[in-house]
């Protein structure tokens, strides 16, 4: 039976490209990145092209996602944080659309690869560090020294703060990657049960109803997870950007 749950994560080369010994091939992953960007970009572009004073349904979706991310960023990082709005909105839309596209059968889920989510997390943390040092100079490192800590505890607290800061890109990327990976494996395993059982005759067909129901239920759950993970990613981005804007606790 063709139900290896790992198969869906395989990367296949569509157009082999090799530069300087490194493999930059256009793969199914690259194709779905393009698809994600095209779908999200075209949706936002086309639904707002009429610039309706009274929005239609689709224009409302674009406006709601704009205001959703804008209020999220304003709540977390204040009005100064709005200069990062394009980045946070791009991240949110990219992750959301990538997650949702991945739910289509036979589609590749780009966020199920750790390198993709890790790069997005590095982009966030890199922005935080670069902007924080640019704006506050050395006092950015006050981030690691909370106020009101007894002198004897400062080294320990600083150590903990540094570790917690360094683990941010890891937790940010692993959270998204692991959620998408685990969800898709679970879906595939349950769907595989349906296929396996239905080959066992009438009893098997009857028995496959249960995993089929589970597959349907998990699909619904995965839609929730797809949105939730994009939301979590965006919220954490906002909170980390808040650190860059206001480093003193």
């Amino acid at each position: 039976m063709a139900n290896d749950p790992i198969h869906q994560f395989h990367i296949t080369k569509w157009i082999p490209i090799e530069i300087g010994g490194l493999d930059f091939s256009f793969t199914n992953s690259s194709a779905f990145m393009v698809a994600t960007v095209a779908a999200a970009g075209l949706f936002l572009f086309l639904t707002t092209s009429s610039r309706g004073l009274i929005p239609g349904r689709l224009q409302s979706i674009s406006e709601m996602s704009y205001e959703f991310v804008a209020s999220m960023l304003r709540d977390a990082a204040g009005s100064q944080g709005m200069k990062f709005f394009p980045m946070v909105f791009s991240l949110f839309m990219f992750v959301l659309v990538a997650n949702l596209l991945g739910l289509f059968p036979y589609f590749f889920t780009i966020t199920s690869h750790i390198i993709v989510t890790f790069m997005l997390a590095l982009l966030v943390i890199g922005t935080v560090v670069v902007y924080g040092i640019m704006k506050h100079g050395f006092s950015f490192f006050k981030l690691f020294v909370p106020q009101g800590v007894p002198g004897i505890l400062v080294p320990l607290v600083v150590l903990i703060e540094v570790i917690s800061f360094l683990s941010r890109p890891i937790s940010l990327s692993v959270r998204l990657f692991a959620n998408m990976l685990a969800g898709h494996i679970t879906l595939k395993v349950f769907a595989g049960f349906v296929a396996s059982l239905s080959t066992l005759g009438a009893v098997g067909v009857a028995g496959s109803i249960l995993p089929l129901a589970m597959t349907v239920a998990i699909t619904a759950l995965e839609f929730l997870v797809a949105f939730l993970q994009a939301y979590v990613f965006a919220v954490l981005t906002c909170m980390y950007l808040n650190d860059a804007l206001h480093p003193s606790h």
């Binding site: 990145m33 960007v37 394009p86």
Partner: peptide, 28 residues
């Protein structure tokens, strides 16, 4: 597969960011 994914992520996400920043977000 990392090199390829990083490159294409940078290209697609970079273009997406620029497109949103220059066209879509000012419009909305």
């Amino acid at each position: 597969t990392f090199a390829s994914q990083i490159l294409w992520l940078a290209i697609t996400f970079g273009l997406f960011y620029l497109f949103l920043k220059k066209v879509v977000l000012p419009r909305i």
